[in-house]
Amino acid sequence: MNEYLSSVNSGIFYLLVAGILGFITIMCFVFLIKSYKAGIEIGMDKKVLKKTITASATFTLLPSISILLGVIALSGSLGVPFSWLRLSVVGALQYELNVAEIAAQSIGLSGLRVDEMSIGAFVTIGLVMTAGILGSVICCIFFLKKYLGKIHKAPKKESSGKPGFGAHATTAMFVGLCAAYIGAYIGKAIPREGQDVMPLFVAVVAAIVMAVFEYFIQKKGKAALENFSLAASMLVAMAAAVFLQMVM
């Protein structure tokens, strides 16, 4: 087994991640029990509270399986324990992969490629991924109490009915992000020294699969597929990469 992959899949790493996630899960139970008791105290119907728990649990099941698929997609390059930690806490698949790629390039690798990774590169990439995602958490620690206090006290403004630019800003930023990557894959596929068609091929396959999902979600009303569209598109495209490598 590759030495790097052995290190990032070591038993001690599993224990470390299990310990951290165990702590967070216990705290989730504390919030749950505290809120349940508060609900009873202010006279909420027990049935409503129980229904909230069962509805939330069932609502979460399918998206959780898609997160698990994300763990599988990430585990080949970052190992199972770190992927498990990253997708259980704070992050999401899109963020983790993008940041890992940026961090890998910043330390001189060509990207997040298993054959270039070392444990030294991994710990730096891991630290960038961790620090980069903590923005909202830090905001919550320092500003949540004040911010929500102000929101609740502020008089409700008449809404114009039109959402602000904020909603479009995040989409625009991600459009730019995707444009940079897709542009690079197109550049790599041009026949010249160092040509590599694989990234563009994989991206196109993923886009086609996603288009099929979008068709069923948007046109056929299969909203439940939304939970799986990203992870499933990626896994099909990754399988296509294996296939292309075999026939090349």
Partner: peptide, 20 residues
């Protein structure tokens, strides 16, 4: 399976790109 995990980022941005 190495090509699959070496191309996880293009897979992500192909799918996300189409969506966005």
């Amino acid at each position: 399976l190495l090509p699959a995990f070496n191309n996880v980022v293009p897979a992500l941005f192909g799918a996300l790109g189409l969506k966005y």
